[in-house]
């Protein structure tokens, strides 16, 4: 059975008499345990696609099915790591994760089990040392780690990452990419990551979904990345498969689907 199926999905936004078609005829199936990157120029609707999968936005036509069941509302089985971490600033790191864990496992795990589970997930992103700090007291990279821990703690069927490292500096971003690869290797989660970083897409993904420019954006091409795991960023830099994949994505983005600023 197909794990996640996006079947002829269209999305239009209506404001008054004006109807804007953002996404058109999106077809994609994702297998369990797969890591898929979605890349495209800004404004192409890739974040909208992620919101549709998350259930935060409703599809206009078509359907999204997870394990054969239609998705039409948000839920903890599709946890989202948001672009700007979205931690609640009045709660400590521990309490931010606890909010999710209490909600998802409140009736199935005991208090002590929930505590262990929270610490286990903070440990996964190496943030146990800051458990009692508030988001305002830790760095941007650390906040994003906590965001990942909160999402993982929901034990989601699919982890959705919406340009999670876009606002971070290059070194912090590399650390977090390694952390995500490590988690993916250990837990085997199904992950979908939105990105606009070609290197990030190639390094992390099993398949790269390339979006055409909007309006009415659709999937232009799907590129498999046949590089064995675990992957190492330094060794990859000179590996032919990596270079080829990188080139293919660059060609797609900058030759065939150049971003036209004036596009209405």
């Amino acid at each position: 059975m197909k794990y996640l199926q996006i079947d002829r999905v269209c999305k239009s936004f209506i404001s008054g008499p004006k109807v804007t078609e953002v996404l058109s005829d999106i077809r994609l199936t994702i297998e369990k345990g797969e890591f898929v990157s979605i890349i495209g120029h800004s404004g192409c609707g890739k974040s909208t696609l992620l919101n549709l999968i998350a259930g935060l936005t409703e599809v206009t036509t078509g359907a999204i099915k997870l394990e054969g069941r239609e998705v039409n509302a948000p839920g903890p089985d599709r946890a989202v790591v948001f672009q700007n971490h979205s931690l609640l600033p009045w709660l400590t790191v521990y309490d931010n994760v606890k909010l999710a864990v209490t909600k998802v496992f409140g009736s199935t795990k005991s208090r002590a089990e929930r505590r262990d589970w929270i610490m286990q997930n903070l440990d996964l992103v190496q943030m146990t040392h800051a458990a009692d700090k508030r988001p305002g007291e830790i760095s941007g990279g650390m906040r994003q780690r906590v965001g990942i821990a909160r999402a993982l703690a929901m034990e989601p069927k699919i982890l959705l990452l919406d340009e999670p490292f876009g606002a971070l500096d290059a070194l912090t971003r590399a650390h977090l990419q390694d952390a995500v690869m490590d988690i993916h290797a250990r837990l085997g989660n199904t992950m979908i990551m939105i990105t606009h970083d070609v290197d990030e897409a190639v390094l992390l993904a099993d398949r790269i979904v390339m979006m055409t420019n909007g309006p009415a954006a659709t999937i232009g091409e799907v590129l498999p990345v046949p590089i064995p795991r675990p992957r190492d960023r330094i060794a990859l830099a000179s590996q032919p498969d990596y270079v080829r994949a990188r080139e293919a994505v660059l060609r797609f983005l900058y030759e065939r689907h150049r971003f036209v600023e004036a596009a209405e």
């Binding site: 935060l56 903890p76 946890a79 609640l88 009045w90 909600k103 929901m154």
Partner: peptide, 27 residues
């Protein structure tokens, strides 16, 4: 909107949303 999205993903109900998101955020 970020906090609302978090609440939506966690499926917080009205009462939980009021106490856990609305009151502290609007305090």
């Amino acid at each position: 909107q970020d906090y609302r999205n978090v609440a939506a993903v966690l499926r917080l109900n009205q009462v939980e949303f009021f106490w856990k998101i609305m009151v502290p955020s609007a305090a």
